[in-house]
């Protein structure tokens, strides 16, 4: 039930912010379309803790701040190697083990890896993540496990 409420609030806010018209006709059209989308998602059976991770909401901002810092550092390193040329890069393919237990946690980890420039999660099977990195150091940084540990904390805090 709380997932349905969260989805309707999100959709309603999205509609209101994008339309910016407050006549009764437009508002009722908005209510109808939100109700229709809720009906569709219930038929598709996708309204659950995976599509509406309300249990994560409190912990996410802190993680986003840390991830933003990592993204800025990674961007600077990739841009540096763009200008330094092809001799300085060392493309590497490696398999990492994710320590998260739920699918949700693993997906957050893999998406964070992909969002950081310089590393892309190519495949995800079980707890094995195949990662392609522009530099060998990027793989070493991931193997050191800072990001893995933070995602694990995020996951643990909401079980």
């Amino acid at each position: 039930m709380k997932h349905t409420i969260s989805l309707s609030l999100t959709l309603g806010a999205f509609w209101l912010l994008n339309s910016d018209h407050n006549t009764p006709l437009i508002l009722s059209l908005g209510v109808v379309s939100v109700a229709f989308v809720i009906y569709l998602t219930h038929r598709m059976d996708v309204v659950d803790h995976e599509s509406q991770p309300v249990h994560l909401t409190a912990k996410l901002p802190g993680y986003y701040v840390w991830l933003g810092k990592e993204i800025i550092l990674a961007n600077i390193s990739v841009v540096k190697h763009v200008w330094l040329g092809n001799q300085t890069i060392s493309p590497t393919l490696a398999t990492l083990v994710a320590s998260q237990e739920t699918d949700m946690g693993r997906v957050i980890y893999a998406t964070s890896i992909t969002l950081t420039p310089g590393t892309v999660a190519v495949d995800l099977a079980g707890d094995q993540i195949i990662v392609h990195a522009l530099l060998r150091e990027n793989i070493e940084a991931l193997e050191a496990g800072e990001m893995d540990r933070r995602v694990k904390l995020l996951e643990d805090s909401c079980l």
């Binding site: 420039p117 590393t119 190519v122």
Partner: peptide, 11 residues
């Protein structure tokens, strides 16, 4: 190659 170009697009 393709995989390294993907990192440039990421930037």
């Amino acid at each position: 190659d393709f995989y390294t170009r993907m990192h440039a697009v990421g930037v």
